[in-house]
Design a binder for these strands. Structure first.
Lengths: 253, 253
DNA sequence: CTGACCCTCAAGCTGAGCTTGACCCTATGA
DNA sequence: TCATAGGGTCAAGCTCAGCTTGAGGGTCAG
């Protein structure tokens, strides 16, 4: 409801209404100047032109007003913060940051001063996690409602209907984000089938391997099996990525 | 005995005598050309002028012969290797590398041994990258030679035969590592087909999408296309992982 | 309707990280 | 002993990432 349509026109133009609805702190969009001010504490080197430059380099994609002004949601700002931190603290070149962010290295995982670990939130097989309304998801991901509808229809995601309203979990939200990203490159519609069926096939494979343990009466064993499942998922994902890279190299000649 | 004194004058000038004395492999000093050759496997981009440049930047300080020739001990070479790895895999600028090395971050703790880093290497579609012999790979990954043989036979990896010896690149090495990991869980043999074909299918998809740009005469456009390829690879990998997680959740109940 | 703010686009700047070339010296073995 | 392959210095130059600047012009809230 907050966002009217694909044109990126917010109903309430500027600093969005601090609407008194749902719990989570609502998204107030900021102009580029405001964003700059809000970050100058942590990053004294920042500048408006730099933020624009980062957008030019495909690291950001804020919505726009009808007039062409950039509007940054809190998520956009968080992403920007992440970018700046990766640049400052890890010396990563923008090209690499772009990829890190494209693959799901998300905001929260960088800031928190830790050393290595990088635990991926929605990568876990366990637990429910938080739920997001369609509006939340659209705002978060910048996706077209039609796209979400399509995904639901194709059974890629299904959400969870609660008192008539459909909610999505983090994984689903990230799926939407990724699909939206792919759409920009012209990957969409039935191409997604390729991914779905390969995921299904793979899940079946892993299940068949761990089936005995998963069906076990012993909760200890079941827990182990679930963990194994997570590990296997990571490894196979990595392997598939490597195989893909290998193939792509041939293509790129 | 091998090295005479602080003046940097070696008793036996050039490639030092392979002296048959004390147990530990004695310090054979290498000339800059020899060093370069010995590293070109792992770092194809290296050059004599670059090594000299690094010295200029105070990252190295090899001894010299009376005549002014640089002489590198094994330790020097190891240090150089470390520098190059920090540069390639962690993207550290030389200024930072200098500090890291000054404050005891030692050779051993960066390389192949440990867990994470190794970022770029096999993630990029570009470039030749370093090469590893079968022995290197087996040592690195702890895999069974038979396994490697199998992978080569199945055409999953093929290596690069150079003067009769087969070498593998980083991607292939990591593929081997992953497959070996999977083998521990009992995933192997023809199960790998699933992964291979899905990677192939996906590569074909991406290729078809970017084909025009990739075939373009304009090098500018081609570069963009290759970058897009890398981004797409990241995104699709992420997406597939998410889909897999989604499936696995159902399985795990 | 004005003043602060924002937009694009092309050109320019800066520093890191090498490379090149001119010119000369060193080590080694035939 | 001297040919020749390999090294050495130094200054200049090149490339690329990552911004900045400036000209010219539109947008938005009060």
């Amino acid at each position: 409801m907050a966002i009217s349509s694909e044109t990126g026109r917010p109903e309430v133009a500027f600093p969005e209404t601090p609407d008194a609805d749902a719990g989570p702190p609502r998204q107030k969009s900021l102009t580029i100047g405001a964003v700059c001010k809000s970050l100058i504490q942590e990053f004294p080197e920042i500048s408006i032109s730099k933020i624009r430059y980062l957008e030019d380099q495909k690291l950001l994609a804020p919505r726009r007003t009808q007039g062409g002004y950039r509007l940054y949601t809190q998520d956009d700002v968080q992403r920007l913060r992440t970018i700046l931190r990766l640049q400052r603290d890890e010396f990563l070149p923008l090209r690499v940051i772009r990829q890190e962010l494209a693959g799901g290295r998300s905001e929260s995982e960088v800031g928190t001063a830790d050393g290595r670990p990088v635990r991926r939130a929605m990568m876990t097989v366990q637990g429910p996690g938080s739920l997001y309304s369609l509006g939340d998801v659209l705002e978060d991901t910048g996706a077209d409602p039609k796209l979400v509808h399509e995904l639901v229809e194709f059974g890629v995601i299904k959400g969870e209907t609660r008192s008539g309203v459909r909610y999505f979990d983090e994984t689903e939200r990230e799926i939407i984000r990724s699909v939206n990203e792919l759409a920009k490159y012209g990957v969409g519609g039935r191409n997604l089938r390729v991914f779905r069926t390969s995921a299904d096939r793979e899940a079946a494979l892993l299940q068949s391997i761990l089936a005995p343990a998963l069906r076990s009466r012993n909760p200890e064993r079941r827990k182990e099996a679930v963990e194994a499942l997570e590990n296997l998922a990571s490894v196979t994902t990595h392997l598939k990525h490597l195989l893909l890279i290998r193939d792509l190299r041939k293509i790129a000649k």
